[in-house]
């Protein structure tokens, strides 16, 4: 190998040895916070929400939470104890009850995408919430879970 290439190799190695660990540290440090399902309160968190209502999907450890703040803002959160049981899951709300494995109804409104063990939380307007929530796997192209919307009395 010629001398100039040896020097270029050495300089490149040193740059990579510094830059790549820094990149990894930055990426890991910026990872989203993951909530521990064990410590998620089952009762309303009155510091933040005036009311919280839960329903469980017919999926192991997947729970939907409808929460209302003192200001009246509503949040829909989905918590998974053991990660999402299906890949590429989207959360929809719809007026129709949908069986697992069915296609998505035409009136379904997308709330957002789920990311795994994180508690995914979505701010929603009250009038956008329909009678049911549906989990739809983009990978399977099928509904994988549905639940009746938790009602606020």
């Amino acid at each position: 190998m010629i001398a100039s290439l040896r020097r270029a190799h050495r300089r490149t190695s040193i740059v990579l040895a510094v830059a790549l660990p820094a990149l990894l540290v930055a990426a890991i440090a910026s990872r989203p916070e993951w909530s521990d399902p064990e410590v998620v309160p089952s009762e309303p968190d009155h510091q933040r929400f005036t009311a919280q209502y839960f329903e469980y999907f017919e999926l192991d450890g997947v729970r939907l939470r409808r929460a209302v703040t003192a200001a009246g803002d509503q949040f829909i959160a989905v918590q998974c104890e053991d990660g999402l049981p299906f890949p590429d899951v989207l959360l929809y709300t719809t007026d129709q009850a949908v069986a697992d494995g069915a296609a998505l109804p035409d009136d379904a409104v997308l709330i957002g995408a789920l990311h795994g063990r994180e508690t995914d939380e979505f701010a929603v307007a009250d009038d956008s919430i329909r009678a049911h929530f549906v989990l739809y796997s983009l990978a399977h192209h099928a509904v994988v879970g549905s639940v009746t919307t938790p009602q606020i009395d």
Binding site: T12, S13, L16, A17, A27, S30, G116
Partner: peptide, 27 residues
């Protein structure tokens, strides 16, 4: 960003250390 299993992170770190370390030592 999505995978929390520390094994994956450990393997990536090990790979980066091996590649950059070997190149720096050989250089």
């Amino acid at each position: 960003q999505a995978e929390q299993n520390p094994l994956l992170l450990g393997l990536v770190v090990l790979g980066v250390v091996m590649v950059t370390g070997l190149h720096v030592v050989a250089g």
